[in-house]
Design a protein around this nucleic acid. Sequence first.
RNA 1: GGGGAGGUUCCCGAGCGGCCAAAGGGGGCAGACUGUAAAUCUGUUGGUUAUUCCUUCGAAGGUUCGAAUCCUUCUCUCCCCA
Length: 309
Amino acid sequence: MPPVKRNNIPLIFLFGPTGVGKTALLDSLFSEGFSVINADSKQIYRHLDIGSAKPEPELVARIPHYLVDILDPWEDFSVGQFVHRADEAVEDILSQGRIPVISGGTAFYFKHFLYGLPESPKSSPEVRFFVQREVETHGQEWAYRRLEEVDPLSAAKIHRNDTYRLTRALEVWEATGRPLSSYRVPSVPREGLKPLIIGLTRDKEELAERIELRVELMVEQGLMEEIDSLLAMKATPEWPGMQGIGYQEYFTLKREGQWSLDAFKALIVKNSIKYAKRQMTFFRSIEGVTWMNPEETESIQALVDDYLS
RNA sequence: GGGGAGGUUCCCGAGCGGCCAAAGGGGGCAGACUGUAAAUCUGUUGGUUAUUCCUUCGAAGGUUCGAAUCCUUCUCUCCCCA
């Protein structure tokens, strides 16, 4: 039985932009009686340890972690799989009498875990590939006009330049014969789900400094060696795992002939800061978040205690 | 000392008499987000009493109905010859 059926399951969400200090907080506040479910779309991959800022093995050994290292970096993953697996993890954790903490930076995962998945079907790789080729051969304009015909509602919501969403909408149409917009999308949290949602935030400048330091540290810890070993596995920029910040920059700079370690670090910092901003934008749209600075451990502790009592 | 190129809005960079508050890119800010989401995409970015007026294209002066665009002098930067 998925936890959806149960009422008022204790569940803590811990979200924050990259570099805000989630892992440190886990260590200090959730080491006793809690288990962590990773909600970070890159930390699910094996071999992406340093670049994805995965928690130290030592921490993982002390606090049980779910959904870390479950796939190889060339394998596809999706929100759907996340929600299903996270539901299972929640069950498992509760059955052990522990409290689940969903922690990570992928707001999209949080959102759909909280509200439940849309009714639209999961992606079909074959159909997607077919549609991608159609869009390539006939062009973006053609694709958009086609969507306007088969699914005007989606067309109105999707910008004509948004290849990604355009492709998905056409994919759903091709695969099911139904417009994407005909599938219901949940707008309220799932039944019985009343999590404590802690949003971690920090001053912009401070966050940027932390990101710079962290990138420096990643390189010291062997980010280049990690990339080398991925390349030895024949990693390409198309691998889902390689689209993470800290990896994509390697391919970008090599492709542009602009490679240097300094340029690499600078680009990672820049992309991380921009990503942090997008994360905040997304997360601000989720209701019921209690925003805290990770330094305020006592207040957060009090918040958690109060929620669990 | 001589010759050449150039100084444009936060940055890079286009514009080279009116259609220029000034293309494009970057960055900033704001936003979207229906199974790839560390992805993908959008808006905005001199001030304002806001379909108007003001300030802005190194500085000062000039030509012109009108200048970032033409002329003069000054100033700074880069390159070449000494």
